[in-house]
């Protein structure tokens, strides 16, 4: 169970059970769809950017605990932050789950719960999907995002 507890930390299980910001955002001015067709994980992210701040963010979708919790924690991490900070979090998160060097603890905060994902190569794409979708939304990419 030790390895599994590393992956399925309590905060991940909690966010999977009760995802935060699981809703469409009224007056969203950015949105994108993420889809891992082989997995069946699907997500839509809505963002309202006011000035250069992520004023509101929400998501809806279906998927495994890793993808759902990643999306939920992502929304709580970037809400109210400048867009540049959200992009910095995206980069730090991506580096952490793909095992590119030591995680940037100061930047990642709660998102460190996903550090265990790098030990499970097949699940990296699950953790990454919401972030790539947010990244695409902020850049107004119209093509659906995939991490497969």
């Amino acid at each position: 169970m030790t390895d599994l507890r590393e992956l399925y930390q309590q905060v991940i299980l909690d966010h999977n059970r009760s995802p935060r910001n699981f809703r469409q955002v009224p007056n969203a001015n950015h949105t994108a769809d993420g889809d891992n067709p082989l997995c069946g994980d699907r997500i839509t992210v809505w963002v309202r950017v006011d000035g250069d701040v992520v004023d509101d963010i929400g998501f809806q979708g279906t998927g495994c605990a890793i993808s759902q919790a990643s999306a939920s924690l992502m929304t709580t991490a970037v809400k109210g932050k400048p867009v540049a900070d959200a992009e910095r979090l995206f980069a730090a998160f991506h580096a952490m789950v793909t095992g590119a060097g030591e995680p940037d603890r100061a930047t990642l905060g709660k998102l460190l719960a996903f550090a265990g994902v790098r030990e499970f190569p097949a699940r990296v794409k699950c953790a990454n999907l919401p972030w790539h979708t947010l990244h695409a939304a902020l850049r107004d990419t119209t093509e659906p995002v995939t991490t497969e």
Binding site: L4, Y8, G63, C64, A65, I66, A122
Partner: peptide, 8 residues
């Protein structure tokens, strides 16, 4: 529990 989590 999502099937992928069961698989892992």
């Amino acid at each position: 529990v999502h099937p992928h989590d069961i698989g892992t």
